[in-house]
């Protein structure tokens, strides 16, 4: 047992310390083993087996589930929906929050109160937010159509029109994420040393110049972090789809996660084999995103 530069006295005590440290890690290790590692292995296993009537794994089918998945046009649709949902939620969400935070930082009175106001959606869970938006989106008596009517525009089937449903989901999601995004970016701006801002202001940097030359480069790590994190979040979105559109109309809002749910659990379907193959695709996409995050964070983010 090497103890580095410390005096090699009383190795017995150090062995005790090692043992104790392992003991401290055991509770976490048990949970991760039982609910992350084991299920990961199971997912691979399930994805290579057929499913009996009750969803149990039946015969070994090799890569059949995967080839079925990639040759069915349906799955291509699912991936496109997922990409669309990510684009429609991440870019507006991060850019919107960035504009809000930059405006809040322009030395105005009441910035704290305003920031809290912008952060309020953070209190809403996916379920509460989706239920409120479902009321607003209601075709007959919802407020969204009420406003359109006031403007003299025809009613829109917010969650029932195939062209609109994804936009409505994205709007709800952007609203839900705004509070989180504002808090993260505000914290980033707040971490900029006061002297830096002061010096920039003394040099005459104001408004847009200050934002573009000083604040933006310095909060680039937070912006990057938000893009990655909200991308991963969007990839995993389930509640708003389940509550607002059930993946419809006609599959128009069936994203990867919702497709997994439909295959495995919805409408009495229990095709765990096919669903697990899709789950592996989800896993790989999210791993790729995290990989990019680590890779970039390690190299450069500042300036």
């Amino acid at each position: 047992m090497t103890t580095g530069g410390t005096v090699p006295r009383a190795p017995a005590r150090h062995t005790g310390e090692h043992l104790m440290a392992y003991l401290f890690l055991v509770p976490s290790a048990l949970v991760f083993g039982a609910f992350v590692v084991w299920p990961l292995g199971d997912s691979v296993y399930l994805s290579m087996h057929g499913s009996d009537l009750f969803g149990g794994a039946s015969v070994f089918v090799g890569l059949q589930n995967y080839t079925d998945m990639f040759t069915s046009g349906e799955f291509g649709h699912v991936l496109l929906n997922t990409l669309l949902f990510v684009l429609l939620t991440v870019l507006p969400g991060v850019l919107g929050a960035l504009v809000v935070v930059l405006l809040l930082e322009s030395q105005i009175r009441g910035a704290r109160v305003l920031r809290t106001a912008f952060a309020l959606p953070f209190a809403f869970s996916v379920a509460t937010a989706s239920v409120i938006f479902s009321v607003i989106y209601n075709y007959q008596i919802g407020l969204a159509n009420g406003i359109l009517g006031f403007l003299g525009v025809d009613k829109v089937g917010w969650t029932t029109d195939p062209h609109m449903a994804m936009v409505s989901l994205a709007l709800t999601t952007v609203w839900m994420n705004l509070g989180y995004n504002v808090l993260v970016l505000s914290a980033g701006v707040g971490a900029i040393p006061g002297e830096v801002m002061e010096a920039a202001r003394l040099d005459g940097a104001t408004g847009v110049a200050l934002a573009r030359r000083i604040i933006l480069p310095l909060v680039s790590p937070q912006i990057f972090f938000l893009v990655v994190v909200t991308t991963i979040q969007s990839l995993q979105s389930f509640g708003q789809i389940h509550i607002l559109t059930r993946g419809g109309p006609d599959g128009a809002t069936t994203t990867l996660v919702y497709s997994i749910y439909k295959k495995a659990f919805a409408f009495g379907s229990s095709d765990f084999g096919a669903a697990s193959a899709q789950a592996m695709v989800l896993l790989l996409i999210v791993l790729a995103c995290t990989g990019i995050q680590f890779g970039v964070l390690q190299r450069r983010v500042h300036y």
């Binding site: 992350v36 997912s43 990839l235 989800l282």
Partner: peptide, 30 residues
């Protein structure tokens, strides 16, 4: 604490954060 293989263990533990819950929700449910 002193702990043999600490860096490896920490990395392995952190790796659990990379696994989206939805990708393993079926076996967990089963």
């Amino acid at each position: 604490m002193r702990l043999a293989g600490k860096r490896f263990l920490f990395a392995a533990f952190m790796a659990t954060l990379m696994v989206p819950a939805e990708s393993i929700i079926i076996p967990n449910y089963l």
